[in-house]
């Protein structure tokens, strides 16, 4: 698999990153070298290996359904770039 300029911009956009034109070449070569390296894994025969989704052996970390009050509204809003004491405020999302 090879990343071209178009897919680079698409991936950047999905992550809300801005890649400047002068950064594109370096970014492409580094992404492609990572992918090439990862592709070596494809050479391994995984026919009888179960997919590994988690690296710990832990399963079923569950909590009982109990309400434990957490932070206050003021604390929750504290770090927001914009808020009005009740709501988080963001640039309008619908036209």
């Amino acid at each position: 698999m090879k990343i071209d300029q178009e897919s680079l911009q698409k991936i950047a956009h999905l992550a809300r990153l801005e890649v400047k034109p002068e950064e594109e070449a370096e970014m492409l070569s580094s992404l492609n070298s990572v992918l090439t390296w990862m592709e070596e894994l494809n050479e391994i025969d995984t026919e009888n290996v179960k997919p590994l989704t988690h690296i710990t052996l832990e399963i079923n970390a569950l909590r009982e359904d109990k309400v434990i009050p957490s932070i206050s509204r003021a604390e929750g809003l504290f770090n927001a770039p914009k808020q009005d004491g009740e709501y988080f405020r963001v640039p309008k999302v619908v036209e």
Binding site: G76, K82, D84, E86, Y87, F88, R89, V90, P91, K92, V93, V94
Partner: peptide, 13 residues
């Protein structure tokens, strides 16, 4: 919440 006339959307989590 989208208020008429406001340039912000309000978020309640």
């Amino acid at each position: 919440l989208h208020q008429e006339g406001s340039s912000d959307s309000l978020l309640d989590y």
